[in-house]
Design a protein around this nucleic acid. Structure first.
Lengths: 369, 369
DNA sequence: CTGAAAGCGCTAACAG
DNA sequence: CTGTTAGCGCTTTCAG
């Protein structure tokens, strides 16, 4: 029986390509169960045996099979971070927070992007259910349609049927009854944008545009913050307003959208823009420059997210800081069923950060050249 | 035996909290193996039985246990992306590439950050070995010490002993014999920085500083590119040169480092800076502004990475574009053992992208105010 | 303290 | 085509 087809592995025996507990037990001259106990530091083993078994295991390069463990109930838990595409600092920061908590709990993190297809989302979730993930963090904005929430509810059920939790992360607390029992970790997007808009109003702007409206949860909340601030200032806006331009959060769309807003007759052109994301704001900077507009004299801008690059721009970008990492940590606790102090639908506060991108519109009027 | 302690799950029976194949088989009135076959679309099952079993499975909300499958040899492969901290666009882009390839191969992606501790790296790798990951991508710069490579070699052996591959990603091809058989996916950092430095030299700069030298693989290669370009221009630099400043790639360190370089008597101050990363370049922009330096008139800057924000800066940042996503895809193929066309130590080309951050130093001389 | 034995849930020969 | 029988590698009673 001298077969030699195992991969380029260590000394050990094993048929499929790994040293098993059985091998260790045999080599140590004990039963499998004793070996198991010894390695698990189970107190019901004599110190001598334990030491010996552990030594043997080390010599054989034994590595327990964690997959099998999970089968028995023991084993490493696993949490998945599912999002459209994990580009972008915001996600990275959230993921960082999730990872921190998971590591402390000895759990592992799956990362999955759904690449925008709703089909992708389903496929990913099903795969995760099969792998008996203990929890799924569905991260990022969701489309706010009944159909979509129905789908989410199905995911919830599917995951529940294998004992896994679903947590929505970064979406506003949802009103849709279909999903009202699914935990959501949100942050106060409305107030954030409201504060940002107010800063522009306070500087004297009236002609304030909004970049980013669309039928997604996040965008809608942010739009609402803008609208409220405007209304309080006696200005009304609605989604059809020419000052409200829809765009996705990707370069290809941002440029044209910004152009539509800025390439106008000075009289029609906004003196300030509220951007749904910093990335959009960055795009606005580029477009404004291309059109020869001076920032902030000719155009004031506020963003949302507080990206690292904001302070390197000229002028530095006023924005809304979101505690993404903390959100990630909280979501991780929720999904692992760890005790939390803000319930299942926390809404984290955000903070408006004024910087140099806001100027009074008067300056525009007085500019001479 | 009417026990009812299972979680809030679907109808199915099951003791631990999940519908098993056995349940499906019983409900469908067939043997377990038939049920297994039916669900696997094994042709050796009558169409009728198959349909019936599949229907039953659906009604019971049955979800195969993928963990168990992996045990048998079938089952989803899993690849891990291990890095210090997954902030930063570069990593995100690489991860995106990895994810794309993995999805196509139906494999799953683990994400792990080691948080900077070498201990963390070990812990993560051991955990991955236990979970029988099929491969590990160790991403990012490594410290170039013998001790470290010894450690890496150990990881390689550990992973090999469970049939998993290790691929180093984003490091230069390594000369250290300890790890020469480990695949590495690199990109031509040296040429990139060389081109960037040449652009500054061509513009007439002589007093060119370098920001970012340190004893890590990446930084060293980049430093080397800088040194070469300088030498070809008849200028010599060495790591001790006051024009060479070391810094990690984090805000806290970048600011002070930039200050050390720029807060000098004009005669001692460089007229241009080669930055190891765009993030550092961004920091230089900030610091330069604080000191009242005009960009690019008083200071030319080049970076490395080609981050999205670069074009929103004023002036737009000249940089080196790296095909991170492609690198990720290649690394994923390598780690999965898929056929590749550039061998086990590819070095991807990079591309210098000139933008507005470079001006002739002459302008500095002629500035009057 | 230790060993034998019974699973965990599924796949894969092996016989009908 | 379908059922029986072995495992996969480990944990955990249950007896010594």
């Amino acid at each position: 029986m001298a077969h030699d087809e195992r991969p380029r592995t260590a000394p050990g025996p094993a048929s499929r390509g790994g040293v098993t507990l059985k091998d260790v037990a045999q080599a140590a001259g004990v039963s499998i169960s004793t070996a198991s106990r010894a390695l698990a530091n189970n107190p019901h083993v004599s110190k001598a045996t334990r030491r010996h078994v552990q030594q043997t295991a080390r010599e054989l390069n034994y590595v327990v099979n964690g997959l099998v463990r999970s089968m028995t109930g023991t084993g490493t838990r696993t949490v998945a971070f599912v999002t459209d595409a994990f580009l972008g600092e915001a996600f990275a920061r959230m993921a960082q927070g999730v990872d921190m908590t998971l590591r402390r709990e000895n759990a592992m993190l799956f990362l999955n992007s759904t690449q925008g297809f709703p089909e992708g989302q389903r496929i990913v979730i099903e795969q995760l259910a099969r792998q008996r993930t203990s929890g799924v963090l569905l991260v990022g904005t969701q489309s706010d349609t009944d159909e979509h929430w129905t789908r989410i509810a199905r995911y919830h059920d599917l995951l529940a049927s294998v004992g896994a939790r679903l947590v929505l992360c970064g979406v506003p607390a949802i009103s849709n009854p279909k999903v009202s029992d699914i935990p959501t970790v949100s942050y106060d997007q409305r107030s954030g944008v409201q504060a940002a808009t107010n800063a522009l109003l306070d500087a004297g702007h009236r002609s304030i545009a909004f970049l980013g409206y669309s039928r997604r949860t996040t965008a809608m909340e942010r739009f609402d913050g803008y609208r409220r601030a405007m209304r309080q200032a006696g200005l009304t806006v609605d989604p059809d307003d020419p000052m409200v331009i829809a765009t996705g959060n990707v370069e290809e769309q941002i440029g044209p959208a910004a152009l539509r807003l800025l390439d106008r007759d000075p009289a029609e052109r906004p003196t300030a823009i509220v951007c749904t994301t910093d990335r959009m704001a960055h795009g606005v900077y580029r477009t404004a420059r291309q059109l020869g507009l001076r920032l902030p004299e000719d155009l004031s801008v506020v963003g949302f997210d507080d990206l690292a690059a904001d302070e390197s721009l000229t002028p530095t970008l006023s924005t809304v800081n979101v505690p993404y990492e903390e959100i990630g940590r909280y979501a991780a606790r929720l999904v692992l069923g760890l005790p939390v102090d803000r319930g299942e639908h926390p809404v984290f506060p955000v903070r408006f950060i004024p910087r140099r991108s806001i100027a009074s519109p008067d300056r525009t009027a007085t500019r001479s050249y």
